[in-house]
Write a protein that binds this DNA or RNA. Structure first.
Lengths: 336, 336
DNA sequence: CTGAAAGCGCTTACAG
DNA sequence: CTGAAAGCGCTTACAG
């Protein structure tokens, strides 16, 4: 690969002149400029980025930390990945994918390597170790998600607590007094998966306040049989359930709808169904009321925020932005 | 961030000694070593990677070039992304995501930046501009896919031509004489999307040889209505169709199966259905015979191959590896 | 067993 | 309008 020295030699100038021609940070005589540009073109010269990075210039790369759990659904990650990557590209930034089980060392490694200008966090836990590590990093860290230890990072997330409250307020207003929350796998909650826990806990608490009983059932599987087993349990514990809030995936909801139909329960006449914290439900046989996740909006805002920090337009670590979810009415939630 | 100088100062040694302690490339006196290690720990010292990259050490990063088209289905990319990333991680490599519409400049940019040790190509077209650019890059390029201009790069792909031939041989052996190939959107073929074209063209040619007529219908949409329109057209052009090969996605196939049922056509009694070049069909209401894509296998092999090249275990640019697909019989293809 | 110094390829004050 | 030189933070021959 041709270096700045080669270009300088071919053009018969000093390397500083070449540098200034390339950067345009100094006015150069027309003739000289022409010769340098021609030499650069001829040699296919491109400035070695490593040398510039060594001098502290931005790498125009953002690390994306995405931990993997057993319950991680790869295809669900895709939306977040692409949303982040597309938005970053707008600003001329590329994404360095960091897939790791426990994020701590990886973050320190990539930060101290100087390979990235900032770090994005995905799949944030309620108390996320990475948010603590962030403080020692002197690189901006923006989380798509809102951990409880959010000082030290910037956080962008949907307002899942508000979502939980609003879901219950709506339920209460419509006369529902017994609600079932169907969750994803229990381990996701145990690991403290952020939005799941926030929504569930706030909804449960709000239910307590309003006098609405909330039964929570994590799933042990997404099959028709799993759903039936879960329904048997739930309905025997609380026969009065009139609203089911699904905090789970399309396959699971599909099987739930089928199971309800098989039991002769009509939606929404006999039982209302609401999906919350979901997205990509387009393949459902029947569209259901939804308080969607809106990953694209959240991710875009996260990247925008990162850029504001990188461009020194703001400097308020610990800042949290919670976006409201827009309720999508589709006729599967009715009064009871 | 603490540098090597800080550590040297704190430990009271020269920077070269610190370097040698960290790298272990020279034996160092026990006492000195201890002091250096302690100083490094105390300062949280990590060698600046940029400085090492500048000296030509491997960055342990692989670029992943994934062009975006209008017809790109993000979620389908996910499998490839994760398969590549997971495999790369095994070797201690991270992935730099390159999303761009036309790959040429981006590849040159990232290659000359010195930020990556090699480049992986995804979504390879029949004649892919990136494969030509690769020759000028002096970085190894491994494609997940097999372009016609494959000298200059390494290629790993499923053997889609063989798949096409085998599909038609099987069809012929089972007595089918009129086959319909249902494709994805036509633009994907026009753009020369590799595997789609290879499979379709080889199947068509093999059909010609065997005396099996092949009708090809790209889709204009995946809905039930789209499918019905397509079926009307196809069956009026060739009423004798007894085998439908689907080179498309799960939603489309689901609607196709439903449309066939609605027409009173039983699978496989009246018409056989085979999915080819597909993956992630788990959500189908009924499992169908399949010649699957096997993205995980292909991606893993691509990364392995990249590593062989990077470790100088091989040096045969232009090398092509075509993996066979394993036919999955599921009772939707029968004799006619 | 350890250190002083060159060099990786740039950018940018400092000079002229 | 242009050049010689310092320096970014390392690694590694070259010396001792």
């Amino acid at each position: 690969m041709a270096g700045i020295k080669d270009v300088a030699a071919l053009a018969g100038v000093s390397i500083s002149t070449v540098s200034y021609v390339m950067s345009g940070k100094r006015s150069i005589g027309e003739a000289t400029k022409k010769r340098v540009l021609e030499a650069a073109r001829q040699l296919g010269y491109m400035p070695n980025a490593q040398a510039r990075f060594l001098r502290g210039e931005p790498t125009k790369v953002l690390a994306l930390s995405s931990p993997l759990h057993e319950y991680t659904d790869y295809s669900n990650y895709a939306v977040f990945f692409f949303s982040l990557a597309m938005r970053a590209k707008r600003y001329g930034y590329d994404i360095l994918l960091l897939m790791h089980e426990y994020g701590d060392q990886e973050l320190t490694r990539v930060a101290s390597s100087g390979m990235v200008d900032g770090i994005l966090l995905l799949d944030v836990a309620m108390c996320d170790a990475r948010a603590d590590v962030a403080k020692t990093l002197n690189l901006p860290v923006v989380a798509v998600g809102y951990p409880s230890n959010s000082d030290g990072i910037y956080s962008v997330d949907l307002d899942f607590e508000r979502m939980g409250r609003e879901a219950m307020e709506r339920a209460y207003a419509l006369g529902h007094r017994h609600v079932l929350i169907v969750g994803t796998e229990g381990t996701a909650y145990d690991d403290g998966s952020n939005y799941l826990v926030r929504f569930r806990d706030t909804a449960t608490k709000k239910g307590d306040d309003l006098g609405v009983s909330v039964l929570f059932k994590p799933s042990t599987g997404y099959s028709r049989d799993d759903v039936n087993l879960m329904l048997d349990e739930a309905l025997s514990e609380e026969p009065g359930i009139s609203l089911i809030i699904c905090q789970t995936n399309a396959v699971h909801i599909t099987n739930l709808l089928a199971a309800l139909q098989a039991r002769g329960l009509k939606v929404p006449e006999d039982v209302s169904v609401l999906a919350a914290c979901t997205y990509g439900l387009g393949s459902l046989p029947r569209r259901v009321d939804e308080m969607p996740m809106m990953p694209k909006e959240t991710c875009s805002r996260a990247v925008d925020l990162m850029m504001e920090v990188l461009q020194s337009k703001r400097n308020d670590v610990g800042h949290v932005e919670l976006l409201p979810s827009r309720y999508q009415a589709r006729g599967t939630v009715a009064a009871h």
